[in-house]
């Protein structure tokens, strides 16, 4: 049984003004999140991803469809029953949303007060959580005395306080600089690995997906247009939206002005080689070309690390006789896609 099962879910908002159009934020989405997944949902702003994540813990009611969390249909719950489900789902936010009126310690203790843990046990649990996120020395500080990255780590400690099996991260790194983003992503990966928490990550940054998500769903205009294992979506994106996101991380095929410039700088034919860790390495590709007596050089591209796996996309300029080039390409073998840039 999936940990979170979203079936045909639609969320629409009534028109703001009389006669206005109904806004459909989430449009017939179905997704399964397995226990232990770090499930990424990526999309541009307005794609409906933040709304989708708020349907999972019932912060907003669905218009249609059902969402099962641990086999319980959250869309049918309200009041105390719904609040009980929420206590088992942690959530972190783009703007951290810490209580300014409380110290760090009291912020982390908040969900423990909600679940009714006695005061003496609360203190020990808060200390343990602050140690886990590496902020035990900040227990008595107030939120504004901490950096953004530290505040988000407090947010994570708070979200984990009541030992939830699921953590929802809504643009959790979008307000952070690249260095602190890494720090927070590392912590989230640890939460998943060491505590076995299922994580749903909402983001517009493909980099975040590449770093921690095991699976990804690409959203556009309220729909999931593509989903699958992160590595597969990166290496074989099916939709334009997914390709655009992939391009933000992987140095992609040259096109437009970049291609014109490459043609001017290099004579010979241009080929792109894409290889995954299932097939040949770049050394084998270059070796095969050299053995065939083909003169080539690398003009564009790079090799990336997606979920700890290698993915390369290289463009080379090749000079030599057509038959030799064809033989060289044929000898490289599986796991590599080599195509001529004809545009």
């Amino acid at each position: 049984m999936p940990h979170i099962s979203i079936t045909d879910v639609t969320k629409s908002y009534p028109p703001r003004r009389r006669g206005g159009a109904t806004v459909v934020a989430v449009d017939g989405v179905s997704l399964d999140v397995e226990r232990g997944d770090v499930f990424g949902v990526i999309g541009y702003s307005g794609a409906g991803k933040s709304t989708l994540v708020r349907l999972i813990n019932g912060l907003e009611p669905v218009t249609q469809g059902s969402i099962q969390v641990d086999g319980v249909d959250v869309t049918s719950l309200s009041g105390a029953r719904l609040r009980e489900v929420r206590q088992g789902i942690g959530m972190i936010f783009q703007r951290f949303n810490l209580l300014r009126s409380r110290t760090i310690r009291a912020n982390v203790a908040y969900p423990l007060e909600v679940v009714g843990m006695p005061r003496d046990q609360r203190r020990a649990r808060v200390d343990e959580l602050l140690r886990f996120v590496g902020l035990e020395d900040k227990a008595d500080a107030y939120p504004e005395q901490l950096s953004g990255g530290q505040q988000q780590r407090v947010g994570i400690a708070r979200a984990l306080a009541a030992e939830p099996a699921i953590l929802l991260a809504d643009e959790a790194t979008s307000a952070l600089d690249p260095e602190t983003t890494d720090e927070v992503l590392d912590l989230l990966a640890r939460v998943n690995r060491e505590l076995g928490v299922t994580i749903v990550v909402i983001t517009h940054e493909m980099d975040v997906i590449a770093r921690i998500a095991t699976k990804v769903a690409v959203m556009e205009q309220g729909r999931v247009v593509e989903s699958g294992a992160t590595y597969d979506v990166f290496t074989r994106p099916q939709t334009d939206t997914a390709r655009r996101f992939v391009r933000t991380v992987v140095r992609a095929l040259p096109d437009g002005d970049a291609l014109v410039a490459l043609r001017q700088q290099h004579d010979g034919r241009l080929f792109t080689i894409s290889f995954t860790d299932e097939g040949a390495s770049e050394a084998r590709v270059f070796g095969a070309l050299a053995r065939a007596g083909v003169d080539f050089h690398l003009v564009h591209g790079g090799v990336d690390d997606i979920q700890g796996r290698v993915y390369g996309l290289l463009t080379i300029a090749v000079r030599g006789d057509d038959a030799a080039i064809r033989d060289a390409v044929a000898s490289i073998g599986s796991g590599v896609t080599i195509t001529e840039v004809t545009a």
């Binding site: 609040r83 929420r86 703007r95 949303n97 007060e113 929802l168």
Partner: peptide, 25 residues
């Protein structure tokens, strides 16, 4: 409104949110 949403997400009841979030904040 973000802190109110955070408290809702933690499963706090409306009365608790008024008492422990909205008024203190």
């Amino acid at each position: 409104p973000g802190v109110v949403e955070a408290a809702r997400a933690m499963g706090a009841s409306p009365w608790r949110i008024i008492r422990t979030v909205i008024l203190p904040e």
